[in-house]
Amino acid sequence: MIRAIYSINGTATTVYKALKIWEDYKKKKPNLIWIDIYLENHELGQEETLLLSESFKFHEMSIEDCLFPQYPKIEEFGNYVFAAVHGIQLKPHYFQEFEDSIYELDIFVGKGFVVTVHAEELFFLETLFEKAKARPQVEMKSLENLLYNIFNKVVSSYEFTLEKIDNKMESLEDDILKGSETVNMEEILNTKKVIFAMRKIAESQQTPYIYFTRANNNLISKEHLVYFRDIYTQCARMNQSITIRSQMAVSLLEVYMSSVTLRLTEAMKFLTLIATILMPVLIISGYYGMNVKFPEYSIFGERELWVFAVCLMLLSIIAMLIYFKKKKWF
């Protein structure tokens, strides 16, 4: 699916046919045109391919990069720059299947045009497109403004995800400290997996953005460089935040393991106390359970001997409890 929007004298025009887009672009010569291509089934249609390769003269390697997953990168060609950036659009159960929430956005940027290519529907692009239709004099006033809005939404998606992760980690930490039995290692490992997946794509994310902060590039005017330095700063801060969260996830796992060990130690301590307290009982019952005639028979008699043995067991238990209490073992 393809769509385009351009503004002439403050009036927005939208086009949904590839051939018509190129005709309008060459005939009306707008200062800026934004073409958005959604790759259904990860494939370019014939008209879209002709528009990119024949009309705009994009290099075949750049077009091919749009069809297959790429690491974040920036490539400079004669009449345009190709950038591949990654963002996050959270889906249900994203903690279990976070990789499905990561999207790639490929961007062709040249004098007077921005072409975005993506393999899944991106809600923020839909919002930006609708804003451009409603307020073209603001949203489409310059290439820098449009490009900044797109980059800002991509980078902000990481911050939104980090907020979700923070809430999850705080909840897990509270449950662990409360000794809740509902916490399991799988939840913590899923959180750790999400952070590491973010870190994998975020570390190389600064490469495309730093290009647009250079004073010698031909696309961004000097007065607009500050906006792209802000994007780069956000990206650097995001990388630092992700690194901190990864360390927190490791610490959370250590706290969980410590709490499990502590609960196990308490259980073992309790069982050891029970076994130790009952040890004299076992010795006494074993002694009087032998099939021999004890000297005590002549002193107490058979029935009284049973009472004596029971009293001896109870006294031994009480003595053990008093001893453990003085030692502060419980």
Score class of each variant (00 low, 15 high):
residue 112 G to P: 00
residue 66 C to T: 07
residue 98 F to C: 04
residue 62 S to R: 06
residue 38 Y to P: 08
residue 111 K to W: 07
residue 64 E to H: 10
residue 103 Y to C: 03
residue 30 P to D: 03
residue 27 K to R: 13
residue 19 L to N: 15
residue 104 E to L: 02
residue 38 Y to T: 06
residue 24 D to K: 09
residue 64 E to Y: 14
residue 35 I to H: 03
residue 106 D to S: 14
residue 37 I to L: 09
residue 49 T to S: 11
residue 67 L to I: 06
residue 113 F to Q: 03
residue 52 L to E: 11
residue 105 L to I: 07
residue 55 S to R: 14
residue 22 W to R: 14
residue 49 T to A: 08
residue 69 P to Q: 07
residue 32 L to D: 02
residue 68 F to V: 08
residue 65 D to Q: 09
residue 36 D to K: 03
residue 27 K to S: 11
residue 13 T to Y: 06
residue 18 A to M: 12
residue 120 E to C: 08
residue 62 S to M: 09
residue 121 E to L: 15
residue 45 G to N: 08
residue 13 T to P: 00
residue 57 K to V: 01
residue 113 F to T: 01
residue 75 E to S: 09
residue 97 E to C: 07
residue 100 D to A: 11
residue 34 W to I: 05
residue 28 K to Y: 13
residue 34 W to L: 04
residue 56 F to I: 07
residue 107 I to E: 00
residue 102 I to A: 09
residue 99 E to H: 14
residue 91 K to W: 04
residue 41 N to S: 13
residue 120 E to M: 10
residue 89 Q to W: 11
residue 61 M to P: 04
residue 64 E to G: 14
residue 107 I to M: 08
residue 112 G to M: 02
residue 113 F to M: 02
residue 51 L to H: 06
residue 15 V to Q: 07
residue 44 L to G: 02
residue 76 E to T: 12
residue 106 D to W: 00
residue 43 E to T: 10
residue 19 L to R: 12
residue 16 Y to G: 12
residue 32 L to K: 00
residue 115 V to L: 00
residue 61 M to N: 12
residue 104 E to R: 01
residue 50 L to I: 13
residue 64 E to L: 15
residue 105 L to S: 02
residue 67 L to G: 07
residue 67 L to K: 14
residue 121 E to T: 13
residue 90 L to R: 15
residue 62 S to K: 07
residue 73 K to L: 12
residue 44 L to A: 03
residue 67 L to V: 05
residue 119 A to W: 11
residue 42 H to K: 15
residue 43 E to R: 14
residue 69 P to W: 04
residue 117 V to M: 04
residue 67 L to S: 06
residue 17 K to C: 11
residue 104 E to A: 05
residue 30 P to V: 02
residue 70 Q to W: 07
residue 59 H to G: 00
residue 65 D to M: 15
residue 106 D to G: 03
residue 59 H to E: 05
residue 21 I to A: 13
residue 102 I to S: 10
residue 86 H to Y: 14
residue 44 L to H: 04
residue 78 G to L: 10
residue 65 D to W: 06
residue 73 K to F: 07
residue 101 S to D: 09
residue 116 T to M: 00
residue 59 H to M: 02
residue 81 V to N: 00
residue 59 H to N: 05
residue 87 G to I: 13
residue 118 H to Y: 13
residue 107 I to C: 00
residue 41 N to V: 08
residue 52 L to Y: 12
residue 17 K to M: 11
residue 95 F to K: 15
residue 45 G to F: 13
residue 56 F to C: 04
residue 58 F to W: 03
residue 70 Q to S: 09
residue 55 S to T: 05
residue 34 W to A: 02
residue 84 A to K: 02
residue 46 Q to G: 11
residue 82 F to V: 00
residue 98 F to R: 01
residue 20 K to D: 15
residue 89 Q to M: 13
residue 43 E to M: 12
residue 24 D to N: 11
residue 60 E to A: 03
residue 60 E to S: 11
residue 46 Q to N: 11
residue 16 Y to H: 14
residue 104 E to F: 00
residue 51 L to G: 06
residue 91 K to D: 05
residue 46 Q to A: 09
residue 33 I to K: 00
residue 73 K to Q: 09
residue 17 K to L: 10
residue 63 I to S: 09
residue 50 L to N: 05
residue 100 D to Y: 10
residue 42 H to C: 11
residue 34 W to T: 03
residue 18 A to V: 06
residue 19 L to T: 14
residue 18 A to W: 01
residue 33 I to Y: 03
residue 49 T to M: 08
residue 16 Y to T: 13
residue 48 E to D: 06
residue 20 K to A: 09
residue 52 L to G: 08
residue 42 H to I: 13
residue 114 V to S: 00
residue 35 I to L: 10
